[in-house]
Amino acid sequence: MNKVGTTSTGSVMVEMTAQQYEALRQLTKPSPSPAPAVTPSAKVTDAKPISRAEKIEHVKQHLKKLSPKKRESVVNSIRAMFQNSGGISQSEVDAMIKALQKSGYFTIATSGKVAYRV
């Protein structure tokens, strides 16, 4: 057995052949090229920020497909839409919901039930 790596709780031990171990070591060895690798997350940070109106339109399109029935489901849907781009704060989510209600896209009853306008 060879020590492959460590975790927060200890080492990871895996039984493998010498050939498999060498292939794994080649994959985990840093590349000698001087150019830094471009990761997908680096591309996201280089993108221009979208405006609040564009975000609301994006949310409208997805909520139209999902049509969540409760306020909590609307909140979860909005959070999920922005999780790959760094997330969204609760105050931004609340502001979007208020803007969608103000525009007449939907209403939310005090019980939390969502009613969409036709």
Rank of each mutant, 00 (worst) to 15 (best):
D94W: 01
Q90C: 03
P40V: 01
M1V: 07
G112E: 09
G5V: 10
R25Q: 09
T28D: 02
P34T: 06
M13F: 05
L100T: 09
V114E: 08
G5N: 13
K60L: 02
M96L: 12
E72H: 02
Q101K: 13
T7E: 03
S33P: 07
V4N: 12
S33M: 04
I88T: 08
P68L: 02
A53N: 08
Y21H: 08
Q26R: 05
V4P: 08
I56W: 00
L66F: 05
K69G: 14
K55H: 09
G112A: 11
A109G: 14
Q83T: 11
P49I: 08
A35N: 06
S8M: 00
Q83Y: 15
T110D: 15
V4M: 06
V12Y: 07
A99W: 03
Y105P: 08
V59I: 12
K113D: 15
T6I: 05
T28A: 04
L63R: 00
A109D: 12
I50G: 01
K60T: 09
M81D: 05
S8D: 01
K69T: 14
G10N: 07
M13R: 00
Q20G: 02
S91Q: 11
G86E: 03
A23Q: 15
E92S: 14
T7I: 07
A115P: 03
K102W: 11
I56L: 02
Q61K: 03
P34F: 03
A47Y: 03
S41W: 02
G112Y: 10
Q19R: 08
Q83R: 15
Q90S: 11
T28G: 06
R52E: 00
T107Y: 14
A109P: 02
M96G: 09
N76F: 04
T17W: 10
K29E: 09
L100C: 12
H62A: 05
P40W: 03
A18R: 03
S31Y: 10
A95G: 10
V93C: 08
I56K: 01
A109N: 12
G5R: 04
A109F: 14
R25N: 04
V38H: 08
K113L: 11
E54Y: 13
S8N: 13
E57P: 00
K55N: 04
F106C: 14
S11A: 14
K3C: 05
G86A: 13
T17A: 06
T28W: 13
N84S: 05
V118A: 13
L66T: 11
L63N: 00
Y105I: 13
S85H: 14
L100I: 07
H58F: 05
